[in-house]
Computed example of a mutant assay.
Amino acid sequence: MHCKNCNNSLRDSQKFCDECGAKVIQNRLKPRVLAQQVNEQFISIDNKFLRTFIDLFKKPEAVIIGYIDGTRKKYIDVLQYFAISLTLAGIQVFLMTTFFKEALDFSSGFAEGFNTTAPKTDNPFTNLNLGDLTKYQSLIYIFTVPFSAFGTWLTYYLLGERTYNFTEHLVINLYYYAQYIIITAVLSILFLLFRLDYLIVSTLVTIPTIVYLFYVLKRIFKNTFWETFARFLIVMVIYVFSMFIIMIFAIIIVLISKQL
């Protein structure tokens, strides 16, 4: 018998490939088998998703550094976990644009600032509603991760801490952002159900998730509190600058789409 993923030779009694770690599937795909796999991954108490979600709070270094070092069986793969988070974000956007449209009807001081800089007849920002950016939320998340990874990589590289290369910093930020997206998506949906102000709620949710990034960096790089704090400030400066660029890019996309 051979592994269907890497073609490694296996014993008949093996349940996992000792080369790539993939589970050995011996039964044909049937509804019962598919239901069992869904239960193992997402529903059962000891499933990978729940374990990954909880341990990213309790011991994020075990999940993230474990993946970087090659441990792939205990937790969900970083790209799969990020894909799940984007799915939840997509559900959030669907609910907002379908059942909670009033939540997107908020004015932006940022847009109003542009509105006052030029006559309305010549001002492309006149009809801008930043609620339209919600439609591109998943795309914004995807573009944000490389910028954030560059921020953490550059900060630690300049300070002489070069344990992890850029790709490994990308893994760190993918896990962080997946956790961030899952938390904000779930909480946003719950708050929308209670008819709370979306803009205020999303702002309040962002604060603890920023603190969570500090916590993740401290656990992974094992610096002191103040060393981590100094590095965190540098990362946030790069992050805010990057987000500004991304927001401008997203606004341009919205404006172009309105012209088409």
Results as ranks from 00 to 15, higher is better:
residue 2 H to I: 10
residue 5 N to I: 05
residue 10 L to N: 05
residue 11 R to N: 14
residue 11 R to M: 10
residue 12 D to R: 09
residue 12 D to C: 00
residue 13 S to E: 13
residue 14 Q to T: 00
residue 17 C to F: 04
residue 17 C to H: 04
residue 18 D to G: 09
residue 21 G to W: 02
residue 23 K to T: 12
residue 23 K to D: 01
residue 28 R to D: 07
residue 29 L to Y: 11
residue 31 P to C: 00
residue 34 L to C: 08
residue 35 A to V: 07
residue 36 Q to A: 14
residue 42 F to M: 06
residue 43 I to C: 02
residue 47 N to H: 11
residue 48 K to D: 11
residue 50 L to S: 12
residue 51 R to L: 15
residue 52 T to A: 04
residue 54 I to R: 07
residue 54 I to E: 01
residue 55 D to Y: 15
residue 55 D to E: 12
residue 58 K to C: 08
residue 60 P to G: 02
residue 61 E to P: 08
residue 64 I to A: 01
residue 65 I to E: 11
residue 67 Y to N: 05
residue 70 G to C: 04
residue 72 R to V: 12
residue 78 V to W: 04
residue 78 V to Y: 13
residue 81 Y to V: 03
residue 82 F to P: 00
residue 83 A to L: 14
residue 85 S to H: 11
residue 85 S to Y: 06
residue 85 S to K: 05
residue 89 A to V: 05
residue 92 Q to N: 09
residue 93 V to L: 03
residue 95 L to G: 03
residue 97 T to N: 11
residue 99 F to M: 09
residue 102 E to N: 15
residue 106 F to V: 15
residue 108 S to H: 05
residue 109 G to P: 07
residue 109 G to T: 10
residue 111 A to H: 06
residue 113 G to P: 12
residue 113 G to F: 04
residue 113 G to V: 02
residue 114 F to T: 02
residue 115 N to Q: 15
residue 116 T to I: 13
residue 118 A to I: 03
residue 126 T to F: 06
residue 127 N to T: 07
residue 129 N to H: 12
residue 130 L to T: 07
residue 132 D to S: 14
residue 135 K to D: 12
residue 136 Y to G: 06
residue 137 Q to S: 14
residue 138 S to T: 15
residue 139 L to W: 12
residue 140 I to K: 08
residue 142 I to C: 03
residue 142 I to A: 06
residue 144 T to R: 09
residue 145 V to D: 01
residue 147 F to L: 11
residue 153 W to Y: 14
residue 154 L to A: 12
residue 159 L to R: 14
residue 160 G to C: 09
residue 166 F to M: 06
residue 167 T to C: 03
residue 169 H to G: 00
residue 170 L to A: 05
residue 170 L to M: 13
residue 171 V to P: 00
residue 171 V to E: 01
residue 175 Y to G: 01
residue 177 Y to C: 06
residue 178 A to Y: 02
residue 179 Q to G: 08
residue 180 Y to A: 08
residue 180 Y to N: 08
residue 181 I to D: 01
residue 183 I to F: 10
residue 185 A to D: 01
residue 187 L to S: 09
residue 188 S to F: 05
residue 189 I to E: 03
residue 189 I to H: 07
residue 192 L to D: 03
residue 192 L to P: 03
residue 192 L to K: 02
residue 193 L to F: 13
residue 196 L to E: 11
residue 196 L to N: 07
residue 198 Y to G: 02
residue 200 I to W: 06
residue 200 I to Q: 09
residue 201 V to F: 04
residue 201 V to A: 03
residue 203 T to I: 09
residue 208 P to G: 03
residue 210 I to R: 00
residue 217 L to F: 02
residue 226 W to D: 12
residue 227 E to P: 04
residue 227 E to V: 11
residue 229 F to A: 13
residue 230 A to D: 13
residue 231 R to W: 02
residue 233 L to Y: 10
residue 234 I to V: 15
residue 235 V to Q: 01
residue 238 I to L: 15
residue 239 Y to I: 01
residue 243 M to I: 15
residue 245 I to A: 15
residue 246 I to A: 11
residue 247 M to R: 10
residue 248 I to N: 10
residue 249 F to D: 13
residue 251 I to H: 04
residue 253 I to F: 05
residue 255 L to D: 07
residue 256 I to T: 10
residue 256 I to G: 09
residue 256 I to F: 14
residue 257 S to H: 13
residue 260 L to F: 09
